[in-house]
Simulated assay, not measured.
Amino acid sequence: MNNEENEVIDLVEILYAIRQHLLEVILATVVAAIIGFAASKFLMTPQYSSSAMMIVNTRQDVTSNVTSDQINSATKLVATYSIIIKSDTVLQQVIDNLGLGMTYSELNSRVSVQAVDDTQVMKITVNSTSPEWAQTVCDEILAVSPDIIKEAVEAGSVKVISKASLNLNPISPNIKKNTALGAMVGLVLALGIIVLQVLLDNKINTEEDVTKYLDMTVLGVIPQYDQGGKKE
Rank of each mutant, 00 (worst) to 15 (best):
N97S: 13
I83V: 14
V126M: 07
G228M: 15
A143N: 15
K212L: 15
V185R: 06
N2R: 14
C138D: 02
Y48Q: 01
I149M: 07
K212Y: 11
A180V: 12
S145V: 04
A17T: 00
L166I: 08
E13W: 02
S50F: 06
D61T: 09
G186A: 03
P170R: 04
K76M: 15
N169M: 10
R59S: 13
L27Y: 10
S109Q: 14
Q70S: 05
N174R: 11
T103H: 04
N65L: 11
T89F: 11
N127P: 03
E140V: 01
F37D: 07
A152Q: 13
S157D: 08
K41D: 03
A143S: 13
N127Q: 14
A17F: 02
S105G: 09
E232A: 10
N2L: 13
S105E: 15
T89Y: 13
A17M: 09
T45F: 08
C138W: 04
I55N: 02
S112E: 01
N65F: 12
I149K: 04
A39D: 08
G192M: 06
N97G: 09
E132W: 06
P173L: 06
M122D: 04
Q70T: 04
V31A: 10
F42C: 00
I149L: 05
E154F: 09
D117Y: 10
T119G: 05
V113Q: 02
V198M: 07
S165G: 10
S105F: 10
E132K: 11
M53G: 05
E151A: 14
S51W: 07
T206E: 01
N169P: 01
D215Q: 09
A115D: 05
A190N: 07
E151C: 02
V126W: 06
A79R: 12
E154W: 02
T125A: 07
D118Y: 11
S82H: 03
L100N: 00
V121H: 08
I161D: 03
S145F: 06
E7I: 15
V113I: 07
S128K: 08
K123D: 10
K123H: 04
V198G: 01
L27Q: 12
D147L: 11
H21C: 07
V137G: 03
D226F: 01
I161R: 01
